[in-house]
Simulated assay, not measured.
Amino acid sequence: MVLIAASKVLLAVAGLEDAERYFGTAAQFLPCHRQSASPESVRWAVLTAGSCLPGTYDCLDRALTGSTLLVANDLPHRLRFGVDPQSDTFEAHAWIESNGDVLIGDIDDFGRFRTLTEREVRG
């Protein structure tokens, strides 16, 4: 819960690059560090934490939190960022893929987003 709440603050105050760096460092000190959790248990933890806390947590908050937990558990994954090129307004999305499947960030109209960048992360 602390990670997802911190992601909201860090992204707003420091931006994505600095938030990723801070969370990368934090992943080394998490109690779960290198304890072999499954990608599915990380997904459950992120989605549950986001639904239990007040406020709203968007795809970027969830993706950053999930990536941090996956790194802490030494689980490789891809952190992806995309946009909807057909939208009249700017619409972006962030998601995590693990083992070829969308782990965090799967939405009903997912196919409309074109990947701009991805970061392959080795735990």
Rank of each mutant, 00 (worst) to 15 (best):
Q86D: 08
D88G: 14
I107Q: 13
E20G: 01
C52S: 09
R21T: 12
F110V: 12
I96D: 06
A45W: 09
G50Q: 07
L69K: 00
V13H: 11
V42L: 08
T115E: 08
A19K: 12
L116H: 12
R43V: 00
A63N: 12
V42D: 01
L16D: 02
S98N: 15
L11E: 00
T56H: 10
A45F: 12
N73Q: 02
D61W: 06
Q28S: 13
N99S: 09
A63C: 15
G15K: 09
L16N: 06
A26N: 05
D74I: 02
R62V: 10
M1I: 07
A94N: 10
D74E: 14
P39S: 03
A12Q: 06
Q86N: 09
H77T: 07
G50D: 03
L60K: 14
P76L: 11
V46A: 09
S36M: 12
D106N: 07
F23E: 05
S87Q: 08
S98D: 07
A72R: 07
I107Y: 11
V42M: 06
V121M: 09
F23A: 10
G50T: 08
I4T: 07
P39C: 02
R78Y: 00
R119G: 02
S98H: 15
E40N: 12
M1W: 03
R78M: 01
S67F: 02
V83L: 08
G82R: 00
W95T: 13
A27S: 15
L103M: 14
V102L: 14
T117G: 05
R122F: 04
W44K: 14
F81D: 00
S87P: 01
F110E: 13
D88A: 11
F90C: 07
E118W: 04
W95F: 15
C32T: 12
P54L: 08
V102E: 10
I107D: 04
K8N: 09
A14Y: 09
S36Y: 04
H33E: 01
T68L: 02
T115N: 00
E17W: 07
A27T: 07
L116Y: 12
D61I: 06
T115V: 07
V121G: 00
V121R: 04
S38Q: 11
L116C: 15
A49Y: 11
H77I: 09
G55Y: 05
K8M: 05
S51K: 15
R119D: 05
G82C: 06
P31I: 04
G15H: 06
L64Q: 11
T117L: 10
A27G: 13
S7Y: 05
L3W: 04
L79I: 12
D58P: 09
C52R: 15
E120L: 07
Y57G: 01
E20R: 06
R21P: 00
G66V: 11
L75T: 04
Q28G: 14
E120Y: 14
G105K: 05
D108T: 11
A6F: 00
L47P: 03
W44F: 12
V2F: 13
S51M: 11
A72P: 02
S87L: 04
V9A: 10
A72T: 04
G15D: 01
P39H: 01
I104G: 01
S7W: 05
L70G: 04
A37P: 01
E118F: 07
A72C: 11
Q28Y: 04
A12V: 02
W44R: 15
P85V: 10
T89N: 06
L11Q: 08
R122Y: 11
F113M: 02
